Simulated assay, not measured.
Amino acid sequence: MHIILVSNRLATAKTFVITPRFVLAAVTVFLAMMFATSALFSWLSVQFRLPFLEHMVLSVHKQEVERSDAYMRDNLNAMAARLGQMQAQLLRLDSLGERVSSLAGVKPEDKPIDFRGGQGGPLLLAQPQTPVEFGQALDRLSRHVEYRLDALSAMESQLLDEKVRRSLLPTITPIQGNYVGSGFGWRVDPIVGAGAMHEGIDFVADVGTPVIAAAGGVVVVAENHPQYGNLIEIDHGNDFSTRYAHLSKLVVKDGQFVKRGQHLGLSGNTGRSTGPHLHFEVRYKGVAQNPSRFLQQGGQLAQASRGRR
């Protein structure tokens, strides 16, 4: 950049060239002068304790401290309010967890030492006013949340185990029959007319009525038997098994996994039978059990489920 100066007294003009180095030097000199002036005022204030300068410096410092305190106080109040909301939600979660465990029949785990013993009184949540108090409240809340998560996880595990156990019990009726022709226990055999043990339940139904699995499991037998006729036997685990006899058609095979309520075949009149029906057995460790006990349990569970809805 070129600057030309022209004077009325001089016939000639003077030219100045402004280079980047010149600009940098000028800025440096300007900043140095400002720093020197500030240092001078500070030195004068300290040495001569000038009231005006001292008051100005203290006023600026006080304003900065007040702004910083106000900002921190606002943040602490906002976080304290949020902490109070979280504590209230945690109390409701504790109450809900106790009700759920009671309804599910699950025994809650022992509480940690910090939370043992009866507690009560009006709900007056303390609002932390200092960072130290706020940190302590957060630590307590964190420990309580960790305990509650562990307790709910244990409850979930127990409920899942119970759900799996129930799903493997034969508790649903395997056929929509017209009526029960013969129950479990001693009876007069319909063919020979002598007293004999009947190890299942006979559901009277027309030929071709769908038959379903009373519980999930693995098919271990799917064959024609001299007395049972077309027979399906399912292993449900935990030493439980079920048998479905006198079928007219089989739609599953050995080794197949079946779900609870899955279609197995059609009712019929095969084997040692006097008419169309489904012979249904429940066995535990190979010993015949009364299927009515399990089917009644399934009906109670279904009613309880509808009641909760």
Rank of each mutant, 00 (worst) to 15 (best):
R116V: 05
A154W: 03
I113A: 15
L149I: 06
F48L: 14
A126F: 07
T130G: 11
Q127I: 01
N77I: 03
A137C: 03
R143V: 05
L91R: 09
D69L: 06
K62L: 09
L93Q: 07
S102W: 06
S68D: 12
V100L: 15
Q127Y: 07
L90F: 04
V65W: 07
Q158H: 08
Q129L: 08
Q85D: 15
H61D: 15
D161H: 13
E98A: 11
P131H: 13
V46Y: 10
V132C: 08
F52S: 10
V132L: 13
H144K: 13
D161R: 13
M33L: 12
M72D: 02
L31D: 02
K107P: 01
Q127P: 00
K62V: 04
L53I: 07
L152S: 08
M34F: 13
M72E: 05
L138Q: 11
N75V: 02
A88I: 13
M86P: 00
K107V: 11
S101I: 00
A137L: 01
A70L: 13
F41E: 02
W43Q: 08
L123N: 09
V46K: 12
Q119Y: 08
A151D: 11
R82M: 07
V100R: 03
Q136A: 10
D150N: 07
D94G: 09
M155L: 14
F30A: 14
F134P: 03
L76E: 04
S42L: 05
F134W: 01
Q129T: 08
Q89P: 00
L152I: 06
L152V: 11
G97A: 12
V100E: 11
K62D: 12
A81R: 12
R82G: 13
N77C: 00
G135L: 02
D139Y: 02
M34H: 11
R99K: 11
S153I: 03
S142W: 02
V65T: 10
L96H: 05
G105K: 02
Q85N: 14
G97Y: 00
S157T: 06
A78P: 00
L141F: 09
A32D: 02
E133G: 10
L91E: 15
P112C: 05
G120P: 04
L31H: 07
V60G: 06
L149N: 13
A126R: 03
I113P: 00
R116T: 15
